[in-house]
Design a protein around this nucleic acid. Structure first.
Length: 233
DNA sequence: TAAGACTTTCCTGGTT
DNA sequence: TAACCAGGAAAGTCTT
């Protein structure tokens, strides 16, 4: 399951999404589905609050039409709700099977978010830019975990969101994730932190004296500030 | 192929 | 004592 998840192609993902119950969808599948639905309307994707699109299949299925209108607006909300109902009817299968699959998927839910290759069609560029990794550098990897605190499984937390101060809560777990991304199973926090310290010279990070596991984004780090994130509806 | 940027690995020594 | 921090040195990887 692990390897398959990380190597799932765009075509595989589309096939899985079209055949599986929405209950089994990953976050990526939900994003693709939203993207496909936007393509069929005149909806301006730039006005979408992408932070609210970070849903997996089970979360999506719990939403009523009013919930969807609240999140996606009066134009796209009902459209998505109808589309979901149709897809649910089409893929009506025993939920127990889906549940088992969903539990496995959810274990790797965040890893998929951070490690899969972004899909790149014109209409989902914005979604991919915010929810897929935007770079291969360590500080970007850290930043992308921090941008979605509700999805980071307690790995990192903001100490001061406005100032860009953050803290490692599970240092070794973050190091292992970084190692996984770089295909290096021997990565440790000790090594990761050495790379972090090199960022001080380049003003990507600033020192936070006297605070263990605490770092601060510097003037050359971009994409972490609230006003740098895509617009809210 | 070379050069440079970036990261990894190892290390010593200091601090919490 | 363990975990973390600071930073030098050298080597590895990747991109241009």
């Amino acid at each position: 399951v692990h390897n398959n998840m990380f190597t799932q192609s765009k075509a595989d993902s589309h096939r899985f999404r079209s055949q599986a119950s929405p209950l089994c969808w990953t976050l990526e599948n939900v994003l693709e589905w939203i993207s496909d639905n936007i393509e069929g309307t005149n909806f301006d994707a730039r006005s979408l609050n992408l932070a609210y699109c970070a849903l997996d299949g089970p979360s999506l299925c719990k939403m009523s039409q009013n919930d969807m209108i609240g999140v996606f607006g009066p134009q796209l909300g009902p459209h998505l709700h109808q589309s979901l109902l149709k897809h649910k009817a089409k893929t009506n299968a025993p939920e127990t099977i889906h549940r088992k699959h969903t539990d496995i998927l959810s274990t790797y839910y965040f890893a998929v978010l951070t490690l899969t290759t972004p899909f790149r069609r014109p209409t989902d560029l914005v979604i991919a830019d915010i929810l897929a990794p935007r770079g291969t550098h360590l500080w970007e990897f850290i930043r992308d975990i921090l941008i979605y605190p509700e999805k980071n499984h307690g790995l990192l937390k903001w100490e001061d969101r406005r100032e860009g101060v953050f803290k490692f809560l599970k240092s070794e777990a973050v190091a292992q994730m970084w190692g996984q991304k770089k295909k290096n199973s021997s990565m440790t926090y000790e090594k990761l932190s050495r790379a972090m310290r090199y960022y001080y010279k380049r003003d990507i990070l600033e020192r936070v004296d006297g605070r263990r596991l605490v770092y601060k984004f510097g003037k050359n780090a971009s994409g972490w500030k609230l006003n740098e994130l895509p617009s809210v509806m």
